[in-house]
Amino acid sequence: MALPLEKYLRVGKLPHIWCPGCGHGIVTQAIIRAIDETGLDTEETVIVSGIGCSSRAPGYMNFDTLHTTHGRAIPFATGIKMANPELNVIVITGDGDAAAIGGNHLIHAARRNIGLTVVCFNNNIYGMTSGQYSPLTPRGSYASTAPYGMFERPFDLCELVKGAGGSFIARSTAYHTRHLTNMIKEALKYEGFSFVDALSQCPTYYGRRNRLRTPLDMLNWLRDRAVPASSWDKMTPEEKDGKFPIGILVNQPSTELTKVYGEVMVKAAAEGGRG
């Protein structure tokens, strides 16, 4: 039922800095609800973020929290997990943070299968700097740096992570809050690298430029484009146009990196190394 907000939030730091109707509070709530329902110990859970609107979330969350540099949350988190594999390490990142400046780190964390849960607050725009296009901005959408419409091709982040070897990948939206919470829960339970593409809305810098005048318009826009993963594969390319699948997209368990490294340590201690 109702979330014990005082347990999971630094209530003294609220209200938050996000604009009215911003989806990031919805996704943040989904994360703490998933943590609550999964029963993770708040003292053994670390939240790491990069730079951008999304990356302000950890400041409001009552855990050990680390707000790093632009794009670099994943390698900071990698160091934490390597240093203390007992910790649950959650990364909160945005689409600019994860897919542009930090894209290299995202694919390598997926390749390594290090036990991080990465939740991308994907509002397909740079909100903090007031509305420049990101690698996730749909073609034709307007942004302050795409005044004639987005002319570049966007990424499909889940496909990118899949191509990099990601073994748990899910997607949901700020419209589908219960579903989103469940996706994050499954990601938290997964031992290796888990990635959740959480589509969020930026009414201020995306909506206003793209005829989605209210937060509700934006949520409905997310709803109308989302297709359950189970139906996605049966659709024709024409039917898929402009839409995206939601649900668990990849779930192929594989041994987590720090576990593998534990074996390296045993081997090193026994052999004394070859170098």
Binding site: V46, V48, D64, L66, T68, T69, R72, I74, P75, F76, A77, T78, G79, I80, K81, M82, A83, N84, L87, N104, H105, I107, H108
Partner: peptide, 20 residues
């Protein structure tokens, strides 16, 4: 850990240091 780049290496050691 051999990181994907120099930036990540510096980030990772900061993270590990914060983990003690």
């Amino acid at each position: 850990l051999q990181m994907e780049d120099e930036i990540a290496s510096m980030a990772a050691i900061c993270g590990a240091s914060l983990a003690g």
